[in-house]
């Protein structure tokens, strides 16, 4: 079986029971992706598959053959941290660090969803073009990633700051006042 993981084609023969999470952690020693509950309830195992965030614990490795997978180890490029990674350090978006890889992959996946204009449960007008996006949107969209240390404020601050850097002016125009203030802070 074959997967493209962080830009590299990787091969392994796996037990059909093996989750994508255990494939990463045990077979490929990519232990950055974490196991918090192994039942899709905490988000610590979040990875990107073809750019979309999923819970690797509920994914059977065999079902994801041939797919392109990005883990926390693959977010930095050429040794430069992804803007969201750097912002997590600056804004103290973690304490123990165990949920952090999942938070980061989830945040990067969420940025893609925003770019695609994907709605959330708190989007006021589902039919409107363009999500009017604010801190509640961010909080709702990141609610699939638990943090027991309670770094939620720092996580939200970090993602808002990282987003501004990542999306630059394109998003700048859409930023509402609340988020703008947030980033300025």
């Amino acid at each position: 079986m074959q997967w493209t993981i962080n830009g590299q084609v990787r091969e392994a023969e796996v037990d059909f029971r093996t989750s994508l999470l255990d494939l990463l952690r045990e077979q490929f020693q990519l232990s950055g992706t974490k196991k918090g509950c192994n039942q899709g309830a905490c988000g610590a195992c979040t990875v990107l598959v073809d750019g979309e965030r999923i819970n690797a614990c509920l994914a059977l490795a065999v079902q994801y053959q041939g797919r392109t997978i990005t883990t926390v180890e693959g977010l930095a490029e050429n040794g430069t941290l992804h803007p969201v990674q750097a912002a997590f350090i600056e804004h103290d978006g973690f304490q123990c660090g165990y949920c952090t890889p999942g938070q980061l992959c989830s945040a990067v996946g969420m940025i893609g969803e925003l770019e695609r204009d994907h709605p959330s449960a708190v989007t006021a007008d589902l039919a409107a073009n363009g999500i009017e996006w604010n801190r509640d949107e961010l909080r709702e969209r990141m609610s699939g990633n638990l943090c027991r240390c309670g770094a939620y404020n720092g996580i939200a601050d970090a993602i808002a700051a990282g987003l501004a850097k990542e999306l630059g002016e394109e998003l700048g125009e859409e930023l509402d006042e609340e988020l703008g203030e947030e980033i300025a802070r």
Binding site: L30, S31, G32, T33, T71, V72, E73, L75, A76, L81, Q85, A86, F88, I89, E90, D92, F94, G97, T100, P101, L104
Partner: peptide
């Protein structure tokens, strides 16, 4: 900022 921040955000911790 945390001295172990880089390890924690890159998955190397």
């Amino acid at each position: 900022s945390r001295v172990d921040g880089a390890e924690k955000v890159t998955g190397s911790a």
